[in-house]
Design a protein around this nucleic acid. Sequence first.
DNA 1: ACCATTCCCGCAAACGATTGCGATAATATT
DNA 2: AATATTATCGCAATCGTTTGCGGGAATGGT
Lengths: 339, 339
Amino acid sequence: MMQRITIKDLATMLNLSTSTISRALSDHPDISEATRNRVKETAKRLNYRTNLQARFFRKKHSGLIALILPEINMFYHPSLIEGVNAAIAETPYSLVMFQTNNSIKQEKEAIEQCIRWAVEGVMISGTINTNKYSMAHLEELALANIQCIMYDRVIPDSSLPMLTIDNADCAKKGVNILLEHGHRNILGIFANVSLAITQERMEGFKQAFRDLGLVPNPDHIITVERPSLLDNILPVLLSNHIFSGIFTMTDELLYFTTNNIRKLNLAIPEDLSIVSISDGVFPNHYYPKITYIEDSGKRMGQAVLAQTIKNINNSNKEKQIHYLPTEIVWAHSVKGIEQ
Amino acid sequence: MMQRITIKDLATMLNLSTSTISRALSDHPDISEATRNRVKETAKRLNYRTNLQARFFRKKHSGLIALILPEINMFYHPSLIEGVNAAIAETPYSLVMFQTNNSIKQEKEAIEQCIRWAVEGVMISGTINTNKYSMAHLEELALANIQCIMYDRVIPDSSLPMLTIDNADCAKKGVNILLEHGHRNILGIFANVSLAITQERMEGFKQAFRDLGLVPNPDHIITVERPSLLDNILPVLLSNHIFSGIFTMTDELLYFTTNNIRKLNLAIPEDLSIVSISDGVFPNHYYPKITYIEDSGKRMGQAVLAQTIKNINNSNKEKQIHYLPTEIVWAHSVKGIEQ
DNA sequence: ACCATTCCCGCAAACGATTGCGATAATATT
DNA sequence: AATATTATCGCAATCGTTTGCGGGAATGGT
């Protein structure tokens, strides 16, 4: 069980002081090129590796950035995590991860761990129950001088930095596609109504109608706590053929919707046109390909990591809200109908 | 910018030594109940939190466990990560994550980071290119006295501890379902052929035939580097109706296969019976529900984390291979045919 | 030949927590 | 009452690295 090589070991071996070793390894100008090379060479030969715990402990920062997820569904989070990982690989930071399972209690514990670890940044997407009245634990981060940034599921009326998309506009663009193709009986399928993003996307849904002088029918808007509940609702809703178009606000809802459409032996887009907000993976591989408004998890992951590091380096305290742009990706799930 | 409260702060405030504070906080019997309570009370009041960096630095371990993933697909890894997170939440360890994108170079860098961080355990699933001849970087972990355990994509002829399922048996059970229902023309769809799990599952596929005295047809076995390549292959293969049954070795392959089946306007199970090895999420939500051999990512995640901690606590050096049991989950994707 | 720079390197403290050992005071034992 | 034991706490070193400061030697300038 060989012990790890330390700077002290190198120092005694080369008859130098630890300070010289340290400076030589970090290319300090005080050290001559000769000894610098000598140090680096033996360091390499002996497989010396800096003890990051010790370095960061001395330097008073941890080199850690935390990612806190409420849950991990198969549609959004794989690409989100991929984006974060891709971005952090270019930096000297490492990623620690916590999953809160939509529990405020677990969210608090995750935050506690972040403070204990002295992570330098926290990227958090709130639980279903996280709102401006249950944010005391998030403010602890500010007290501990830790940068915190909300992404995806943000709390609009908080003062934390936020990274999201323009949810209302995004939904509006999606519904507009259906409206412009002549659809008027459009079913809007939304997630848990207590989420801010749900409310914003619902508002965009309605606004698309109003912009055309139409009145959105509240009966044509449904929200479900869990996507699987659609298996109970959709067979009834779709069997009487009221709707010619469907808008779903997430990939998960889209997935359950397409399954139910198939179960009812309906065809896309012949019987039903459909548009969704989506990460992009599912609609592109589905048959037929589905038209969607892109809300890319990967891009979000990259952006939130970049913004976190930016905030770490210069912590300005003004309120930050960044919106990632979204755009339509066209496919074959919408057909025009005569009115 | 309030500085963090340290043990030293508590010591001066309470007119005690740092050692007393430290011992009081950790319930050392040397400390009287009176001062222990006094210390704990003020620690709580001032929101003192141990600096884990300092503690672990002093105690010579990091409290970190690393998860190294080659990629993150939407089917297996969300539940794997969920399992790991669920299990690690019960422990004092924290999870750091690395993604190698199937690149040996990135895998090496991840390992380097693990050693620098002095993580206590590494859970790794190899890249497509990781084999027994490209494992020098993994042996570095042993030299650094870091427990390493392979899961999912293991290298059978390495000496590292491994956690996997009995791939051959698993595939055999799946194919057997089709054979027992009278199917003889079964298409086997497999992933990248350079992976050990692919070869093992292919072997199980063939063995199922041999067990019944049948000869497996090599033309009925296809392997694809990437699942999306099925979009080019399957339309040709399935259009002449040679096959009555399909076996897919992963969820991803199953997904692309079902899409192609739909594109060809074929029905499950009327036109094609299908069985897969799967995490379980997709087959349960698909319509129709699909019969599968369960290879649960969540359970794998929990198991690999548990085994890692076990190995950290007593590092026995004998070769370890653990197989997680698998079982059939029945649904409605297989119909019996007359021979 | 004298002084001022410059170059190169070492000394020692510091980061925050833990821990072996020793010390004092309180209590128990005979 | 003298000794032994126990209870409670402090001293100081330690983990590996970084860094401000200072010092000696070499170099340059006049």
